[in-house]
Amino acid sequence: MIKKYAIANQKGGVGKTTTCVNLAASLVATKKRVLLIDLDPQGNATMGSGIDKNDLEISIYEVLVGACKAEDALVTSPSGLYSVLPANGDLTAAEVEMLSMDNKERRLREALEPLIDRFDYFVIDCPPSLNMLTVNALTACDGVIIPMQCEYYALEGLSALVNTINQIQSSLNPRLSIEGILRTMYDPRNSLTNDVSAQLNEYFGDALYRTCVPRNVRLAEAPSFGQPALVYDRQSKGAIAYLALAGEILRRNETARADAAQV
Score class of each variant (00 low, 15 high):
Met1Arg: 15
Ile2Arg: 13
Lys3His: 10
Ile7Lys: 07
Thr18Asp: 03
Thr18Tyr: 06
Leu23Pro: 02
Leu23Met: 02
Leu23Gln: 04
Leu23Val: 07
Ala24Ser: 14
Ser26Met: 12
Leu27Ser: 04
Val28Leu: 12
Thr30Phe: 15
Leu35Tyr: 00
Leu36Asp: 05
Leu39Asn: 10
Leu39Met: 13
Asp40Ser: 01
Asn44His: 12
Gly48Asp: 03
Gly50Leu: 03
Asp52Ser: 07
Ile60Cys: 06
Ile60Trp: 05
Glu62Asn: 11
Glu62His: 07
Glu62Val: 09
Leu64Trp: 04
Cys68Thr: 15
Lys69Pro: 04
Ala70Cys: 04
Glu71Gln: 11
Asp72Lys: 13
Leu74Trp: 13
Ser77Asp: 11
Tyr82Glu: 06
Val84Trp: 03
Leu85Asp: 02
Leu85Phe: 01
Leu85Pro: 03
Ala87Asn: 02
Leu91Cys: 00
Ala93Val: 12
Val96Thr: 13
Val96Cys: 10
Ser100Pro: 04
Asp102His: 14
Asp102Arg: 14
Asn103Lys: 03
Lys104Ser: 14
Lys104Tyr: 12
Lys104Phe: 10
Glu105Lys: 11
Arg107Asn: 09
Leu112Thr: 10
Leu112Ser: 04
Glu113Pro: 01
Pro114Thr: 00
Ile116Lys: 14
Ile116Glu: 14
Ile116Met: 13
Asp117Gln: 08
Asp117Phe: 00
Phe119His: 06
Val123Thr: 01
Cys126Arg: 02
Pro128Leu: 10
Ser129Trp: 06
Thr134Trp: 03
Thr134Ala: 05
Val135His: 06
Asn136Gly: 01
Asn136Met: 00
Asn136Leu: 05
Ala140Phe: 00
Gly143Arg: 08
Val144Glu: 01
Ile145Gln: 00
Ile146Thr: 09
Ile146Tyr: 01
Ile146Leu: 09
Pro147Ala: 10
Glu151Ile: 09
Glu151Leu: 09
Glu151Trp: 10
Tyr152His: 07
Tyr152Cys: 02
Tyr153Glu: 07
Ala154Trp: 03
Glu156Val: 05
Ser159Thr: 01
Asn163Tyr: 00
Thr164Met: 14
Asn166Lys: 08
Ser170Phe: 03
Asn173Asp: 10
Leu176Ala: 01
Ser177Met: 14
Gly180Asn: 05
Ile181Cys: 09
Arg183Thr: 15
Tyr186Gln: 06
Asp187Cys: 06
Thr193Gln: 11
Thr193Leu: 11
Val196Pro: 05
Ala198Ile: 08
Gln199Ala: 11
Asn201Glu: 15
Tyr203His: 09
Tyr203Met: 07
Phe204Cys: 00
Gly205Tyr: 05
Gly205Arg: 13
Asp206Gln: 08
Ala207Asn: 11
Tyr209His: 05
Thr211Phe: 00
Arg215Ile: 11
Arg218Trp: 08
Leu219Ile: 08
Ala220Arg: 04
Gly226Phe: 02
Pro228His: 07
Tyr232Phe: 05
Asp233Leu: 07
Gln235Arg: 15
Ser236Glu: 06
Gly238Cys: 15
Gly238His: 07
Ala239Gln: 04
Leu245Gln: 06
Gly247Asn: 15
Glu248Ala: 12
Glu248Phe: 03
Leu250Lys: 15
Leu250Met: 14
Arg252Ser: 14
Ala256Arg: 12
